[in-house]
Each structure stands twice: as C-alpha cells, then as structure tokens.
C-alpha cells in the first residue's frame, strides 16, 4: 500500500473506531434541517421553496463540525510532527486527510440529504440535482475547511475561530450548489451550475493542499 493510502486508511480506521464523530455530524445535519419547518411553519409550498437553501446551509455547518479535530488531534498526540518529517510531501498528507474526512462526513451527508429533501417536500428533479451537486460540492467544502483547520492548529478557541475563517470562503459553493437545485426544480439549464461546481472542485483540489501544507509547516516549527 502506498503511503498516501496508508494515511487515508489510518484516518478511516480512527473514525470507525470512534464512530461517535461521524454519527454526530449526520444527526446534527438532520436535526437542524428538521428545526426549519418548526420555525417557518408546516406550509409545504414554502418548505419546497426554501428546501435547497436549507439543506445546503445545514450541510455547510455540519461539514464544519468535525473539521476542528482534523489536524488538532494529530497535533496534540505528536503524530503531526511525524507526518511533517515523513517522506510523503505534506501537500499529499493534507490531501489524504481531507479525503478521509470527506469519506466520513461528506459522503454521509449526501446519503442523508435525500431523506431531508423528502421531509422538506422537494420535487424529484430537485432531489437528483441535489445529490449530484453535493457530490461535486462537498469535497470542495472539506478541502477549504482543511486549510482553516490547518491554520487554527494550536489556536485558542479553535472552533468558533474556524467557522469565522471558513464560512466566508464557502460562499461560492453555496451559491452554485443552491443554484443547481433551483434550476432543476424550475426546469432551467442545470449544466452551467454543475460545470462551475466542478471548476471550483478542480481549483480547490490543486490550491488548498498547498495552502494547508504551508499552514501546517508554520504550526509545527
């Protein structure tokens, strides 16, 4: 097994053995989305209208929950020092850890999203577009979040700080993610939204490992 897959496998094993983190993220995701009908009333037309935005905003918040531990846990038990000293480039380490994080949170959010879409009375076309848009969008969320997690390693009050750093950078993913679902519901062209979500993913895939690695090097110096 290559060193890259070893890191992914290690993080996946850790996540499975401490299953509470991933289940907490999904529970949070569902719980917040369920609060919206209670807040705005049970009118199905209104719920269908706001459902893309509600599900996406909730997904942004949920994907941020477990980010704080992404590098902080390794920093505290000293394994981050070994990862920095190891022969695998730090950029690849960031990418591997992001991949593991996405598999244990983003994937689960995508699985849970159709259930929420049904609860919020979203149409079938919207549901398919939502799943596809989340497949393209949530990896970008994890990658951007990984930079924030790397920057806040060792910081005081990491969690609140992380959300302040990361949420403004999530804006493009949110706009085009919601745009894709809205377009699908109203029968307009969905393709441009997917193309831009794909472009955002391609860009973050290249740039965020560089930024994340730079941030981690500052942290362990």
């Amino acid at each position: 097994m290559s060193r890259f897959t070893l890191i992914v496998a290690r993080d996946l094993r850790l996540a499975l053995r401490r299953g509470a983190d991933s289940t907490m993220v999904v529970t949070f995701f569902i719980l917040i989305a369920v609060l919206f009908p209670l807040g705005v009333g049970p009118d199905t037309a209104i719920l269908a209208r706001i459902s893309p935005g509600v599900i996406w905003v909730t997904a942004l918040l949920a994907s941020m929950l477990s980010l704080e531990r992404l590098f902080q846990a390794d920093f505290e038990d000293g394994s981050l020092d070994l990862l920095v000293l190891g022969s695998l480039p730090l950029e690849a380490v960031v990418l591997a850890k992001s991949l593991a994080h996405w598999l244990t949170t983003g994937m689960l959010l995508i699985v849970a999203a159709p259930v929420l879409a049904l609860l919020l009375n979203m149409s079938a076309e919207g549901l398919i577009a939502l799943v596809l848009a989340m497949l393209l969008g949530t990896p970008s969320l994890t990658l951007i979040g990984a930079v924030g997690a790397a920057l806040t390693v060792g910081a005081r009050r990491g969690g609140a700080l992380l959300s302040l750093l990361v949420l403004p950078l999530y804006v493009p993913v949110l706009i085009f993610g919601v745009g894709a679902v809205d377009a699908a519901i109203s029968g307009m062209a969905v393709r441009p939204h997917f193309l831009i979500l794909g472009a955002l993913l391609a860009g973050t895939l290249v740039l965020t490992p560089l930024a994340g690695a730079a941030a981690l090097r500052q942290a362990v110096q």
Binding site: L151, T152, A155, R157, L169, A215, Q218, A219, Q221
Partner: peptide
C-alpha cells in the same frame, strides 16, 4: 484579525495570518 490574535505566540499568529490573507 481573529486568527492573528488567537495564538499565545505573536510570531505564530502572524505566520498563520499571512497564509490566510493569501487564501482570502
């Protein structure tokens, strides 16, 4: 501003801030 002031060591805060400013 929050990130730069979030570390006990001001040098570490400035370095993290520099990466964030470029990302932004």
């Amino acid at each position: 501003i929050a990130l730069v002031n979030a570390f006990d060591d001001p040098i570490r805060g400035a370095k993290a801030g520099a990466v964030l400013a470029l990302v932004g």
